[in-house]
Design a protein around this nucleic acid. Structure first.
Lengths: 119, 119
DNA sequence: CTCGTATTTAACGTACCAGTTAAATATGGA
DNA sequence: TCCATATTTAACTGGTACGTTAAATACGAG
């Protein structure tokens, strides 16, 4: 099961409809109906996307009469952003530096020295 | 279908095994067998994870004899990092500022006129 | 050529995902 | 109370994801 936070977050972000919803919410809160409007998709489908986003902690929903006002929940993005940020140095490093780094740390898969593992 | 780049990337990152593989590759190149070793999972399963990562552009594989040397492919992370980075301001902004922003931009659920009031 | 090692492909099962329509629930208003 | 509106839940379906084992493929060594 995919219970860990990071998996849930990335999984939620993997769907284009959900990313579009988040982009829309970045411009301000909206109700389910408003969020559904631009999509060629049934309301229950959108409702489900919103549940996924809620479970992933990426949005919040507060009840106002029969409306659910959805808002972005910034905290929910943080862990994923931090995770991916770790890899930033790999593309921000100059290419030759990266090359040198890999050269330095990569083990040869040659036979004979099965005990000289990396690290 | 999930053909767009961002979806493919986030989808690839949504699996903990694949994230562990990437973390391992961050320390240097490795062969399939070496990557599979720490996991309680068959080799074909790992091979498949590597295919997903390759298709997402997150790793590269070069053939060396019967080995496949896997390396991190930094470019593959960039788009996802940039996407998520757009949301950074939402959690880096002070809370009252964010509130003010949402207050300013949130539309009312259609019910006559909207004049920027909420709650 | 044949054998052992490294890896992938094939075939299969189970579970989840994303969509549908129909029915249920909740609320405010006539 | 009854109705319209907003949204969710239920039940179902097709497609895809992820794991398995068994067989196929690719290569170097002897």
């Amino acid at each position: 099961m995919d219970t860990d936070t990071l998996s849930k977050t990335f999984s939620a972000l993997a769907d284009p409809t959900r990313r579009a919803i988040l982009a829309r919410l970045a411009q301000g809160a909206a109700t389910v109906g408003e969020l559904a409007e631009p999509f060629d998709m049934s309301l229950p489908a959108v409702s489900r996307h919103l549940r996924v986003l809620t479970d992933a902690g990426l949005i919040e929903r507060q009840t106002e009469a029969q409306w659910r006002r959805c808002t972005l929940r910034a905290e929910g993005f943080r862990a994923a952003a931090d995770w991916i940020d770790f890899y930033r140095r790999f593309w921000e490093a100059r290419f030759d530096q990266l090359d040198a780094f890999l050269e330095r740390t990569a083990p040869e898969p040659k036979k004979g020295r099965r005990d000289g593992r990396r690290r």
